[in-house]
Design a protein around this nucleic acid. Sequence first.
RNA 1: UGGGGCGUCGCCAAGCGGUAAGGCAACGGACUCUGACUCCGUCAUGCGCAGGUUCGAAUCCUGCCGCCCUAGCCA
Length: 559
Amino acid sequence: MSEFVPRNFIQNIIDEDLKENRVKKIHTRFPPEPNGYLHIGHAKSICLNFGLALEYGGLCNLRYDDTNPSKEDQEYVESIERDVRWLGFDWEDRKFYASDYFEKMYESAEQLIKDGKAYVCDLSPEEIREYRGTLTEPGKESPYRNRSVEENLDLFRRMRAGEFPDGSRTLRAKMDMASPNLNMRDPVLYRILRATHHRTGDNWCVYPMYDFAHPISDALEGITHSICTLEFEDHRPLYDWVINNLDLGCKPRQIEFARLNLTNTVMSKRKLRELVEKGYVDGWDDPRMPTISGIRRRGYTPSSIRDFCERIGVAKANSTVDISLLEHCIREELNLTAPRVMAVLRPLKVIIDNYPEGQVEELPAENNPQNPELGSRTLLFSREIYIEQEDFMEDPPKKYFRLSPGKEVRLKHAYIIKCERVVKDEKTGEVVELHCTYDPQTRSGLDQSGRKVKGTLHWVSARHAVPAEVRLYDHLFINASDQAENGEQQEEDMILNPDSLERLTNCLIEPSVQGAKPGDRFQFMRQGYFCVDLDSTADRLVFNRIVSLKDSWAKQGKK
RNA sequence: UGGGGCGUCGCCAAGCGGUAAGGCAACGGACUCUGACUCCGUCAUGCGCAGGUUCGAAUCCUGCCGCCCUAGCCA
């Protein structure tokens, strides 16, 4: 984990608020709408809000912003809680719902009416739009704007009582139809909506709008810093208006920051939903998805995500973080914690002609050279083994230091072997088998020969290896206008990567992985970090590639 | 077009008038029984542009330019 912890502008604001005694103890909240699955962009917000509370010895609430029953569902609240917990944060007994405050919000609305600051408007949605004006022209006042307090109160109560059809009337704040900020042109506070709410059922047929509900929820919970994304910047005057025109005993401060964008993926709920619904991925938790559930299934650790969120920083400039930073974070952690194991993904048979038939040798192998505490295991070596197809080339390029005819390599933790003969399929010409000889003097740890070879290969014993399926993942999207020097990548410029998943079903892995459970992580030597998938069964393991190892040889090839 | 916000290395991002942190990526090299890891080195005379103030400006002022948000009874 990095020790580098940058201070961001929000921390500066909080420091100032503390210093000036505007607040004594900070209190934040993470306010998702339960209408979809959380993604890594939400993780940034979660880490920010809970992280700030932790850092300053304050509190952070979990609060569902459930003011629109037509879009929300209980299914989502469960997944949200699982995800926040998985990330390592705890809201203790502070799980709230905006819907908990519906009665209080309703009372607040009546108070605004009594104060002459809100009115019931009979304009249709289309009319409201017309009356709102445009970016350059001021709006017109609603003909219902000057109803008496009594009439407004009566109408509003009857709205609540269900006397009017959906959409027929609204409660609006009396602000300024000429404001250059369209949000201030008498915004709607309440609408009539007959939909069953996931918590309040059919108790209500009027529901508060976000702009009214959010500041009230914040104030009621004693939130000191209400952190949201940039698009709400224009709503801040409205947020403040609600806070200042109601006596809620608390004046939270709204602060906006830039949401996270990542290269090679999409983040909008709409596009993620589309991937799922059109079957481009297997579900919300498909390991290629940037959802928290997808990332978790892929094999990322919570700590690597927290590290990532810390490293990307918090600022107000729109930005797109290179996904290689995320990959760096998980590699860095797993390098220290993941046991190493040998797995052959695309097997090529090797027969060691001078190795005694039927002999099996036990070879000791450390589980993690970076971390001796992870101990060691015993490998089984025999006459027939498998190596990786790409570790042999009949006609190798310069600087290829793997196996080729007449050349030598070391088998990791075992012997140096030499390739003597290549057996090919007569029809296809495909290499099907290699015959090699080994040098008994070169056994790892006991090597007296003093011989040096450039290449070291991973391998498995044919008799002892266990079969497995391995799923290789690549970026979900590639940039169509690839490597455009102009930097920032737009979601629109991206096309689905047709090779984002490669399923290998004939993999062979050393027997020590037997008994591994879903979620267990390994480094497959020379290949990458892998995680046992949920699809594994008692007799067949399935692995997800979390991330490959860096590969400077592959990079050579691209030049 | 009104209003709001933002422009510091390929990507993030510090910096708050005293002479451009750091991370990722990239590129060299060392080491290596993982072409991994690790280590060493390179990578902004420059902070959107142009003027101005100042002994001194990424930081202050003026004017431009570019990008994002905004005309839901969504959040």
